[in-house]
């Protein structure tokens, strides 16, 4: 019998056979309009994920979840209450200067160690004008300008469905933006729900992968890497940098793109931020 490392609270009972995308460490199955991800042990826990105690998940064609039972390619896997992953509830921030110190440190590091091909890398390195990257950069810069000017619907239209990757980079950015705003709302008691609703509406989510990410962001159903990163921002010491590094490893550039959206939310709604991303827009 195989072993389950974690199974998310939002994994519903049912049989899943329709593959949406595959990697040797993750296989995404369609689950209605969302995705159920079956992952190897080095992928962190999440509410829509089943993490198996295996080095890879190649060859998995079907998953069946029933009450307390899981079958992978027909083979039984055991799990108990201890393996069920609940997204953590984040506490209200008490030491705001510490938080801002850590956020600024984290953003500086992200901008310095940008992931190749990500939105931060385009903003920092630039791109040749008559290339796909150059065209994307023009949209992203305009989107950022509009965001900082407060024109959220027009800004979202510059990002949505644009960019490389299975989850286009612009959509990942919007996921991070929503996640950042929801986090600010929950931990700093700022009312941002109307803006979040506008952003989600304009995001016109039409891709099951992005829909799953966006739903997790809106509900703050954080995966374990994001949960550890956001918790570490409220703590002394530099552990937030190592935690952020784990997010930067997500996908090809998904993690970095989501982080850039997250930091833009912080620049918009947390006073004391150094506006590193906003400054890249002024470079134009």
């Amino acid at each position: 019998m195989g072993r389950v490392t974690s199974i998310g609270t939002k994994v519903r009972s049912g049989e899943y056979r329709q593959l949406y995308s595959a990697h040797h460490k993750v296989r995404n199955f369609l689950a209605g309009e969302m995705l159920l991800s079956v992952c190897s042990r080095d992928i962190c826990a999440g509410v829509y994920r089943i993490v198996l105690d295996r080095d890879d998940v190649e060859g998995i064609e079907s998953v069946e979840v029933a009450e307390g039972k899981l079958y992978v390619n027909g083979k039984a896997y055991c799990f108990g209450a201890g393996e069920v992953y609940h997204a953590p509830v984040l506490d209200e921030i008490r030491d705001y200067p510490l938080l801002i110190h850590n956020l600024n440190g984290a953003e500086a590091m992200m901008m310095e160690q940008y992931t190749k091909g990500s939105i931060p890398s385009l903003l920092i390195k630039g791109a040749l004008p008559n290339t796909v990257d150059g065209a994307l950069l023009r949209y992203y810069r305009e989107g950022l300008r509009l965001l900082f000017a407060g024109d959220y619907p027009a800004a979202v239209r510059c990002f949505r469905h644009r960019g490389i990757g299975l989850s286009p980079a612009g959509d990942d950015f919007l996921v991070g933006l929503v996640l950042g705003m929801m986090w600010v709302q929950q931990t700093q008691k700022k009312e941002l729900s109307k803006i979040v609703d506008t952003i989600i509406h304009e995001s016109d989510v039409n891709n099951p992968l992005i829909r799953t990410f966006m739903m997790q962001a809106k509900e703050l159903d954080l995966d374990a890497d994001w949960a550890r990163f956001l918790s570490s921002l409220a703590q002394h010491g530099g552990s937030y940098l190592a935690e952020m590094q784990e997010i930067m490893k997500h996908g090809a550039s998904s993690g970095a793109d989501q982080l850039s959206g997250f930091f833009v939310a912080c620049e918009l709604f947390c006073s004391g931020m150094e506006q590193r991303i906003r400054k890249t827009v002024k470079k134009e």
Binding site: S21, A22, G117
Partner: peptide
């Protein structure tokens, strides 16, 4: 069924 990492490597 492709993943983003592979897509980026192909582009590169």
């Amino acid at each position: 069924y492709l993943d983003s990492v592979k897509l980026m490597l192909i582009s590169k």
